[in-house]
Design a protein around this nucleic acid. Sequence first.
DNA 1: ATAATATGTACAGTTTACTTTACATGGGAG
DNA 2: CTCCCATGTAAAGTAAACTGTACATATTAT
Lengths: 70, 70
Amino acid sequence: MKNRLEEFRSQRGWTQQELADQVEVSRQTIISLENGRYNPSILLAFRLARLFQMPIEDLFLYSPEEENHE
Amino acid sequence: MKNRLEEFRSQRGWTQQELADQVEVSRQTIISLENGRYNPSILLAFRLARLFQMPIEDLFLYSPEEENHE
DNA sequence: ATAATATGTACAGTTTACTTTACATGGGAG
DNA sequence: CTCCCATGTAAAGTAAACTGTACATATTAT
């Protein structure tokens, strides 16, 4: 799933470590999210959306077509 | 995390199995979500929100106070 | 040059979401 | 009463999210 994490983080002048600290995950987790290695848990998604003050849907861009796992 | 799954499901007259089929998970998963055994993945949350035609935030009720894992 | 900072990769380990199967219970409908 | 259906629990297994550590590289500052 695509996301706009890096965009909003650097918009605010934050490092990956600073973002990680604010939502209480490791720096590795932020890197993996930004680089699309995996999707956040819903709890982390809520924390990030809250931090950036926007709905989850604005931060994480869901598209059903990406979900073809037959 | 609290959610309103059962409420919206029975509002529509659906069984757990019918809901499970529509979002392509097992019935066990729906039971576990409804009974608060665990939280959905963000992908499943998106699928459910889409099905019920509402934002994730309306279906799954996040409260930071529940998250005290020090 | 070298020291510090920011980003990235790799890998092994833990936790949790989700599956499958099997079985229990309670409420209608015949 | 018995059959069916919806809901629930339990347990073992897999997949994916997340952690910690260690190392590489590029940029900037001293």
